[in-house]
Nucleic acid binder design. Structure first.
Lengths: 123, 123
DNA sequence: TGTTTGTTATATAATAATTAGCACAGGAAA
DNA sequence: TTTCCTGTGCTAATTATTATATAACAAACA
């Protein structure tokens, strides 16, 4: 999977990295049990520091997307805590939809967007 | 409208303030043409610095939620650029839904959440 | 003339983000 | 055993961001 950093973005590198890996899992480019590159390897590939990659991996572990094995590094292992995930989705959506509503985007337009994204991700 | 800051949050104060004001617009607690408190006044009310409020107002202006009048301060004035807003909603939703999909949240569960939020906001 | 408005400037402090380098223990493979 | 790679831990330095504190300014207005 291609991972690219936007060094001009206002989003922190470790946040970008987390999002891209999560995107990779959602689109099945990363499969359950698959091994991610080592922190040093990925750091060199995308041109950032080892510790920044390590920070991203640690966050992904805390949020239940990977497990970290001392021997094999980070392994895709999604922890399905649906209640927690639903609560988080609710919070995140509330912020996004408030903006959308202000701008006159209708409920149906959001539903269409959701379908479009789910189709894009292959759900 | 009550505006409250969470000083223990990991979100910056000016971001919290932006989100709350946008929420206020979405829920019609702030009406088009209505005047927001002055930067000094709001700063004192919620116990933060004037410049932090000013930063939030400036961002809201740049994103097209208020207009700033030297005489009357910040005034709710939503700029309805739907194409831009749809593009932004698409990006934001892509990140949120990727997380949700990984956690096994179905398309229908997201649709239900969207309806719930739109109802909550009175849309 | 005062007062309030946003704006601008400067300074300071605290925190977060990023990079760098080094060292360690555990496991795997030569 | 030796070598190599793994994540991890630590310290340090730098830069960017966030937040605060003061102060001054011009515009608008009663």
């Amino acid at each position: 999977m291609y991972i690219e950093m936007d060094f001009n973005s206002d989003e922190a590198l470790y946040v970008q990295l987390c999002n891209q890996i999560i995107l990779g899992i959602a689109t099945a480019q990363f499969q359950e049990g698959e091994q991610l590159p080592s922190v040093r390897q990925l750091a060199e590939t995308i041109g950032i520091n080892m510790h920044t990659v390590n920070k991203a991996y640690a966050i992904l572990q805390r949020e239940g997307f990977v497990k970290i094995d001392r021997r094999r590094g980070a392994i895709i292992a999604v922890d399905l805590n649906k209640l927690e995930a639903l609560a988080e989705a609710n919070e995140d959506l509330s912020v996004v939809l408030a903006r959308a509503m202000c701008k006159g985007i209708s409920r149906n337009e959001i539903h269409d967007l959701v379908d479009e994204i789910y189709n894009r991700y292959g759900g």
